[in-house]
Amino acid sequence: MINTIFLYALAGVGLFSLGLYALIVHAHLLRKILAINIMGSGVFLVLVSLADRTQGIAPDPVPHAMVITGIVVAVSATALALTLMLRVRSETGQAELLEEPPK
């Protein structure tokens, strides 16, 4: 039982790290936005899975509530990001951020 809990938490770390990698290497904004969401899922998985270390009694509800709050924040931010992406595309013709001149 305990081992599965930590396995889920480690999977959360995995998602967080994969998302971070994808966020950095992909240029397309849609992929970047998806990568951020995957990172977020990783954090949520860590929060929720470790809440079940209560030894038989019901899991700790506080991290669950935090995750619901986090999901709403993530949905809101994603909506803003997607709209912004569409606007960037309609202004510049592509859904990527050009490298800025080296400063």
Binding site: L10, V13, G14, S17, R53, T54, Q55, I57, D60, V62
Partner: peptide, 28 residues
């Protein structure tokens, strides 16, 4: 770098106590 970060995080998580009631005592 990212693998090193993931390894550090995994180590940190595995070092957490195997039992913890969190705030469930208070919520109940």
């Amino acid at each position: 770098l990212i693998i090193a970060m993931a390894a550090g995080l995994a180590y940190a998580i595995l070092s957490l106590p195997a039992e913890s009631a969190g705030l469930s005592v208070y919520t109940t």
